[in-house]
Write a protein that binds this DNA or RNA. Structure first.
Lengths: 149, 149
DNA sequence: GTTAATGCAAAGCATTTGCACACGT
DNA sequence: ACGTGTGCAAATGCTTTGCATTAAC
């Protein structure tokens, strides 16, 4: 298991390389947002990240966080995850992995150790789409919500 | 394969039963929204449904469509699907099935005929969650978007 | 008659955009 | 210097809420 510290440093390296290769400036805003995202495992929304980052980087604006996240996704160093909520959530883990979302409170967590990493069909053309990747979304009840009816 | 007509009628029956069992009134708004949802396969958002329904039911308000959708989900006759967009989309098909979302334009379609319906793990307790159901989300490129780089 | 749903309008979040200025390369 | 990013504030989009009225059972 990779420590959070190592993971954050790895992501910053990825970002530096991606910026260099695409001729984009490596700004402190981009670094800080990615570092904050890499440091959490709860798949935060843009606003939640802004709340965390605004203390570390005086004067950063909400709009910048939104723009930076879009850029990070485009550069392939972060991803936008699917949830059933009406807002975007982000994840610095770009490899294939799976999620559970609590049907009651909406909390999202990663799921490991399930044999779900070999589901890509032979024929990647299905229903007109060219399939590129996938993720399994479980719904369930989290510890807190299991007790309440 | 079930015709769209049959499917819509089946959903209306489900709704009638669910309302009766829960002591809720069966309103024309609920019927019309569910019927509209059942008639499409593109997983519309609340606003898209409102656009369709406002012609059929004079005077229905946007807020009602939002409230009705919430009720339909709670009654188990519709579901909110997961996408990477910042708005909710809905589906009248409540059985287990899977989706592809175009990574470029966001279009969502159902995926059939893939052997993905037996992925529920033996142990339904994972990472503190009690797993209830799942759906596989593929990302890919739709026909239209495959051509453009 | 009772209880809950609807319509309207306003409020509340989430996200995007235009523009002047500042910054990374 | 150049091109892009950022901050600010306003605009836009999506969703929820309060309240008086209407409708379903």
């Amino acid at each position: 298991m990779k420590t959070s510290q190592e993971f954050r440093q790895q992501k910053i390296s990825e970002l530096a390389r991606a910026c260099r290769e695409n001729g984009l400036p490596l700004t402190p805003q981009r670094q800080t947002v990615l570092e904050a995202l890499a440091g959490r495992s709860d798949h935060p929304s843009a606003d939640e990240l802004f709340d965390e980052v605004k203390d570390r980087l005086r004067g950063i604006s909400r709009a910048t966080v939104y723009r930076v996240l879009e850029t990070l996704v485009r550069l392939g160093v972060a991803r936008r995850i699917s949830t059933s909520e009406a807002r975007a959530r982000f994840d610095a883990h770009c490899g294939r992995h799976h999620h559970v979302q609590c049907a009651r409170c909406g909390k999202v967590e990663d799921l490991h150790d399930l044999p779900l990493d070999d589901l890509m069909p032979e024929n990647t053309f299905q229903g007109g789409f060219r399939l590129l990747d996938y993720s399994v979304q479980f719904s369930g009840l989290c510890t807190d919500c299991q007790d309440r009816p």
